[in-house]
Design a protein around this nucleic acid. Sequence first.
DNA 1: TATGAATGAGTATTCATTCAT
DNA 2: GATGAATGAATACTCATTCAT
Lengths: 225, 225, 225, 225
Amino acid sequence: MSSKPKTSDRPALSSDTGASRKPQQGRSLASLERMQQAAEKLMLERGNEDFTLQDVSHAGNVSIGSIYLRFDGKDNLVRSVIATVLNRLDRDETAMIDEVVKAAPALADFVPRFVASFADVLRRHAPILRLTMQRAEHDPAVSGPGKASAHRSAARGAAAMMRYRAEIGGRKKELKAMSAYHIIFATLARELSLGSTGESASGNDWKALKRELATMCLAYLRHPD
Amino acid sequence: MSSKPKTSDRPALSSDTGASRKPQQGRSLASLERMQQAAEKLMLERGNEDFTLQDVSHAGNVSIGSIYLRFDGKDNLVRSVIATVLNRLDRDETAMIDEVVKAAPALADFVPRFVASFADVLRRHAPILRLTMQRAEHDPAVSGPGKASAHRSAARGAAAMMRYRAEIGGRKKELKAMSAYHIIFATLARELSLGSTGESASGNDWKALKRELATMCLAYLRHPD
Amino acid sequence: MSSKPKTSDRPALSSDTGASRKPQQGRSLASLERMQQAAEKLMLERGNEDFTLQDVSHAGNVSIGSIYLRFDGKDNLVRSVIATVLNRLDRDETAMIDEVVKAAPALADFVPRFVASFADVLRRHAPILRLTMQRAEHDPAVSGPGKASAHRSAARGAAAMMRYRAEIGGRKKELKAMSAYHIIFATLARELSLGSTGESASGNDWKALKRELATMCLAYLRHPD
Amino acid sequence: MSSKPKTSDRPALSSDTGASRKPQQGRSLASLERMQQAAEKLMLERGNEDFTLQDVSHAGNVSIGSIYLRFDGKDNLVRSVIATVLNRLDRDETAMIDEVVKAAPALADFVPRFVASFADVLRRHAPILRLTMQRAEHDPAVSGPGKASAHRSAARGAAAMMRYRAEIGGRKKELKAMSAYHIIFATLARELSLGSTGESASGNDWKALKRELATMCLAYLRHPD
DNA sequence: TATGAATGAGTATTCATTCAT
DNA sequence: GATGAATGAATACTCATTCAT
């Protein structure tokens, strides 16, 4: 007779670790981690929601009650896992950029390395990122922080390119850096099927595409417009 | 105590119209269309699966039995709708490319127009495309045809660029055309949130990005070697 | 962390039979009756709510789905049973009063017979009436119709006494009739523990009390002013 | 697939204070009182059982463990509250009768005052009495003491009337006194909805009914046989 | 062909009770 | 004595699918 709510309306996904009720110590902390890990494993095996709290209880060796003790419902458990993942991604990305910048004296060194390393980082997190993006589609408590995370990523990427601003041609250097970042991210994300039907050129095509992508961006950035 | 099947394992999504059991005539055909339209409407309103066959029955004024008479289950009804949509997209894309090619004497005319028109076509179909991509994530009966459709699109796009092969610099003209297509599609798809959390630069940024995208591709294609 | 709703908020207890979705015929009707009877039996055995829909399903040989097909939820099933009971009581009471009036030429005949027969009717329905009153305590969808039914009963009882208005002393004959009815009902209801801890004088005391009650009311009604 | 226990089978509700495990002193006593008061408050706000021990723990600032230290389970906590209430009622009723008797030289003074004052006492305790009677319905550990309390009340009421035995007509003075008490209590209880769907004549009707009730009883008591 | 009533497996959530600290 | 974190049984409700008519 009516529609389905599907996701609980509680906001969640608090700033750092996620929606867990309380930071714990000792046994409690261990049990909290077991349930999050069990949930992440099940989410990857079966999809975002296609697992039972019963399943988490068994896989993580925690009682159902315990889950509710920490996570105001299944939805928030899922969000917590996603929040954790976004944090990991943030951290890894930052580290990756630092490293690439350090090793790249010139823009011509930076761009291809950035493309390759960014692709690596994304690939490492791809499965859970897919789930995150999927979930963000209908869950504002995920899409909000998701967008925020994406913004930070964009800012970081563009800032890294601006380190080479002397080599960037034309007036609107910032616009160019931002555009390059967006195009790179979109292309990489697409190849990793981060939320899309991918023709996902397999193997060689994919490698070649990354090369061309770097070439294209480099040419674009340098071009005196 | 166990996992959930969620999607029936029957393959489907036959090449043209979809998974419907039989070509029909007269009344039957009308009822088939009513159920497909009702399903599409409900899919858009509520999401891929968050509607009931009861809902379809009411909205489309068809009996549940009728649905099973044509569609071997809910999943196949959904797949049929998606197949229809992919067909529409194929058709629109082809028409769009023809038109753009016709109006563009040179590559410098073609690229920006292609970006703009392709964005238009995608935007028109964005909501249902989002659903398609979402579903393709776990349903091979959708991801298969989805990939095929994407391939055709890529082939068409690259072929169109190859019309201006004289203007494309360097050796690997095909690789360049294909890469340009992929990068364009990835960027547009991302902006339309086709399956991803989008930082989705709103408004101006998005317009500017499309301009830069065209600029970048044009430069890349023309560049010797 | 919060209160409990406990009873669904849907209004129900429609005028005659109750909250059942549709009057049926043949098999459907039989199954509807089986589930109502099973529910009534379980309500009496275990109390208003202390039974499972699973229980009803087994006892009545109906699927859970069927119950939901007719009764928008467990609450409404209970209400439907109660509605049926209130109807039965209404009918029996009306018949009882007609009979008593017919057999009682004078007020002195009527009052004791009315007390005795009313006690009989109430006793016959006592167990389910107890449940009704209990439930009415927190369920407006029951207390409403319950009050209405009580009003009708009061009106009937007082009207019957007014047939002997010539024998009623004083001015405010209506007030006296109404008061007598209320006092009779209250006393009988109390003895049947219709909703109260009863010291419930057992056996003789109870018989004696009814006699005294009749005596008292008769004296009161006849008394000039 | 099976029945529900719902109320623990342990008998309780010891004669005076209730089911608490031990007489206490100092801090312990204070905590005992806090949990009883919290329980009473919650019972009134939400109904007999619709509160959590968690709630009591918060509202009374006592640990759940403490509750179990005193009360062998939730049921016994509830019973203890009820026992306390019955004691209060007993005390108030006794005081009320003493006062009325003192101020009433003759039966004609006593009866109306008794009706009015008894109504007051009952009204004051009505909410919690409702809960008591409700609970007595399925909990023998409440209905037992409840009946005992009712008996004491009846004995007290009848004894008070017997102080005016000279004015009571006929032989069976005791029977009359007892009957009058019962009828008065039943009528008052009904008006206060002590456990019943009340047509609860509101306002004036209720006042008038009390007057008529007194009139009726007085006439009955005085009437020579 | 067409119908739509019947089925019943599957799951999130609550809360009295226990017991390690 | 006191605590409150952990436990897990228990239950209403949904909806894809079937099949008698």
